[in-house]
């Protein structure tokens, strides 16, 4: 039986013990549900044992009906800590989405569900250059929130975030606070469907002009590009990055949705 290598913290900070384990389903208890926008809820799920997690990783959630019908989906994890038994998932309610609909409408605090993870070591934001440009569309912001919570902002980090409107500008306060607090962090927000009367910021979809301006601010700094959002968004942005001259291997992408 193949195993997956996990790193678990040792007694002192510098010692890490590597152990192997199989990725198993475990019971997760819902300990909090918060609406953070009309479409998105933040679910906090607690497992018995803690896990070491990295921003960009996801967990699978499995639902089973009484007739034996099973559905699974992957959700990107958010946390304040890299080693925890409490995991936050920002989940968008999808029209006709059998899993997200159940989670939004039927799931309540203290109920249990099966989860397994963490999964995914490729779109791992910690294994990269110190300087990054993050580009998010809508709910694609979630892995970046986890990443930004851990940083000391010694190096340049830019986030370009495209959302529909103020209400769907997820984690607004948290991001704006960081933008005020750290001079090495740049937040570039564009709201594509907001009322022009009340929103004076950027309102176009992320275009080459916006990208080039941000890239210019990282001139001479080794930078990795992370793009996360719906499939079309990611396809569009990654092609644009290539077109403005960013090297293929410096772009990492994660598509949300199917």
């Amino acid at each position: 039986m193949a195993t997956i290598c996990m790193v678990t913290p040792g007694k002192n900070k510098d010692t890490r013990v590597t152990e192997s384990r199989k990725l198993l389903w475990e019971l997760g208890k819902v300990i909090d549900i918060k609406s953070i926008s009309p479409k998105v809820k933040l679910f906090t799920i607690e497992t018995k044992k803690p896990h070491r997690i990295e921003p960009g990783q996801h967990f699978d959630i499995k639902l089973t009906s009484d007739s034996g019908y099973v559905a699974q989906r992957s959700y990107s994890v958010i946390s304040d800590s890299n080693y925890t038994n409490q995991f936050e998932f920002g989940i968008s309610k999808i029209t006709d989405g059998e899993v997200s609909k159940y989670l939004h409408e039927k799931l309540s605090i203290s109920q249990n569900l099966l989860i397994r993870g963490p999964i995914g070591k490729y779109f791992n934001l910690n294994k990269t250059t110190e300087s990054v440009i993050l580009i998010a569309g809508g709910i694609g912001i979630t892995p970046f929130i986890f990443y930004l919570r851990q940083k000391n902002y010694k190096n340049k980090i830019s986030l370009i975030y495209s959302a529909k409107n103020q209400e769907e500008f997820l984690f607004k306060k948290e991001l704006e606070n960081k933008n005020k607090l750290y001079k090495n962090f740049s937040l570039i927000v564009t709201l594509t469907k907001e009322n022009k009367e009340t929103w004076k910021g950027l309102d176009s979809r992320i275009n080459s002009k916006i990208l080039k301006k941000t890239i210019k601010n990282h001139l001479g700094i080794k930078t990795t590009y992370f793009v996360c959002g719906g499939s079309n968004f990611v396809e569009n942005i990654s092609s644009k990055l290539i077109r403005v001259g960013i090297e293929y291997q410096d772009i990492k992408i994660e598509r949300f949705g199917p």
Partner: peptide, 9 residues
């Protein structure tokens, strides 16, 4: 484990 209210019908 059954998730009550999920996937009826």
């Amino acid at each position: 484990m059954i998730n009550e209210g999920f996937g009826q019908n």
